[in-house]
Amino acid sequence: MSSKLFESYSLNSTLTLANRFAMAPLTRCMAGPDLVPTEAMADYYARRADAGLIISEATIIRADAQGYPNTPGIFTDAQIEGWKTVTEKVHARGGKIFMQLWHVGRVAHSYFSGLQPVAPSAVKHEGTLPRMRDLSYEMPKALSTEEIREVVADYVTAAKNAMAAGFDGVEIHGANGYLIDQFLHFDTNKRNDEYGKTSENMSRFCLEVVDAVIAAVGADRTALRITPGAYAHIEPDARDRDVFDYLIEELNQRDLAYLHLGIFDDSLTFEHLGGRSSTYIRERYKGTFMSVGGLTPETAEQGISEDAFDLAAIGRPFIANPDFITRVRNQEPLVEYDAAMLAELV
């Protein structure tokens, strides 16, 4: 296996990764009561600390952000304390870990919080909740401009809480059809104010969150995940291309730790993007780019060697193989992922 994958990689003057593999954020719905991380979760992350970077499972920034059962939070003192156990165990093994900050927007549900979901616009997502098929999605409330400012402030609080919990940085989840992504696509953003209709306006909320988090914890400890090609919870629209063209150019003016593609399968192509999402981002983004979406050790090696991306995020194989890095380095066979593995922490 190429030594380049296992060379250290400098994100910036603050953070250097031991290798170019990242453990992708993997929602497991295993938090304890009150959405507090458990000791078992800490052990789970610690076993994978030899990844260059661990990105935590998506972590909700406030009560109305929840759309899945037992997803951890970062908005109470108890949650902060629970995460401290995670970061301490990861750091004890020499690892680095970012927290992924999450608000699911219109795919939240009042079942969890008693609160109506919020979104850019009052556009309901059709279908039922994952893992809770007896619950259908609800009509969200369109955020007012004042409420948008409150959400931005909640992202900042969550980022500060993550740092207080010992994380090395935060990744803002702006992808996969969740709240920030809902502002970036015409299917879900029907606004006529300063947050809608034009590329600049539709990018505004995302950039406000990014800038506010940077101001709070530093650009060197702030990353962002985006989904230019809508495929989850959102229908694609060719006009989205202009929004992401604008957004990425703006991101080039901010010295993020990295930009992360959000997609389950990067073999998917989008006509309005001219092909795969990863190619689209790489051609435009000037900073560190983390790719994802079905990568294997072999395709990661190829992508790094061809300069298609800088970091390779690996998902399910990390669940199946806590010793993924050792196995790949020694060219040992990997255990195949099975969905039953999600029901346990290993």
Rank of each mutant, 00 (worst) to 15 (best):
V292W: 08
T145M: 12
A31F: 02
S110F: 03
V292I: 15
A31H: 02
R28S: 02
N189G: 01
A108W: 06
R149H: 11
E150G: 11
K96Q: 14
A31M: 07
F21T: 00
N321S: 09
Y246A: 01
V217T: 00
K89E: 14
L101Y: 00
I97Y: 13
R20C: 06
S203E: 14
I248G: 04
Y155C: 02
A230L: 12
L179Y: 11
M202E: 05
G315M: 05
E200M: 08
S110D: 08
L256I: 07
D265W: 08
W83E: 04
A216T: 12
D50T: 13
L5R: 00
L311E: 12
V156K: 10
I226C: 03
R329W: 05
Q116I: 08
A92W: 10
H125A: 11
I281H: 02
E336K: 08
E336H: 10
D265G: 04
F75D: 13
M202P: 07
S10G: 01
T71M: 15
F205Y: 06
H91V: 01
I281S: 00
A320R: 07
A63C: 04
G174V: 09
K141H: 15
A108C: 09
K96R: 13
S267D: 14
H173L: 04
L256Y: 01
T145K: 14
V210N: 03
E39Y: 08
V123K: 12
L311A: 00
V213H: 03
D323M: 03
R106H: 05
T14W: 06
A165W: 13
L5C: 01
N189K: 06
L35E: 15
S121Q: 14
A308C: 07
K96S: 09
A219W: 02
I60M: 11
S2E: 13
N192G: 06
L143P: 11
E249F: 03
Q100A: 09
L26Y: 10
M99G: 03
D34H: 10
P72W: 03
R225E: 06
K124G: 00
H173D: 08
E147P: 15
M341S: 04
Y231P: 04
I304W: 12
I172L: 14
G32R: 05
I54N: 01
V107S: 10
T71L: 12
K124V: 09
G52D: 04
